[in-house]
Amino acid sequence: MRNVIIIGSGPAGYTAAIYAARANLNPVLLASSVEAGGELMNTTEVENYPGFPEGIQGPELMTKMQEQAERFGTEVILDDVTEVSLGGEVKTVKTGYSGDFEAASVIVATGSAYRKLGLADEERLSGRGISWCATCDGFFFKQKTIAVVGGGDSAMEEATFLTRFASKVYVIHRKDTLRASKIMQDRAFANDKIEFIWNSEVVGISGENAVDGVTLKSTVDGTESHLELGGLFIAIGNDPRTHLFHGQLELTLDGTIAVDGRSSRTNLPGVFAAGDVIDPTYRQAVTAAASGTVAALDAEHYLASLEQEANHNPEIASAVAATV
């Protein structure tokens, strides 16, 4: 049995791993088979992570975090968690094809997943003109008229990035003001290729084999209009990735995993959560990293208390000896 299993490989997961590994807890980190590195793998320049005054590419930052975690003895496994059992003293985590893992503690850092519009043709046209990742797919929209849906930082970043390829980028937003930070807004406003469509939501997507347009509905007077497009990028936010833990971990009204105050403690002893999966508000690389630190320290404290308990109670000493 292990000391700690970390589920997730974004800034929260890797930072938890760095701290846990430096505390000699020999963590195993289950990184996912195809989404290892998390959301930053789909970004370009990261300009607000301290320590990189010239900025750093998202994928490069994640590679460095992984290297740092591995340097101190983290075992990184590129596989997906399929099932967890967290209630008992021994936590079990099952993976796609790397077998089952057991540990005395688990840190959940599964982040969040792209939110969908929830329209009938969305699934059918995904990858056929609908995309959630400008850096992955922008290349295929050279000289096309496209649109980004959303009003946050990621929508502004995507729109600005896409002007490298597209001839015109509409930004479709439900309100008449943006949620994005000032610097991201200013960049988008200053870009000649970007045009804002305010107070509108996408209520339909058309196209036989590829997207050819969207139906917009005014959030002010309900009138509908059609907009011809060669591509649609959706950046309307994320939902915490909690499906593996339903029925075991308590959630908040926001859908994030509930933790005790400023700690990472969930409703189950020995189970900690960190990063975007507990954060409906800030969701930055650096806040996720900080949250990963909290989880590692909480897990370390928990394991130490188990050991102490064992010292006072010889009956469970043998069970814990296998852990430490």
């Binding site: 088979s33 195809v34 989404e35 590195g37 789909n42 590129l78 992955c136």
Partner: peptide
């Protein structure tokens, strides 16, 4: 430049 491509390639 496609991160997900690098993940799927070894699979």
């Amino acid at each position: 430049w496609c991160g997900p491509c690098r993940m799927v390639s070894p699979i």
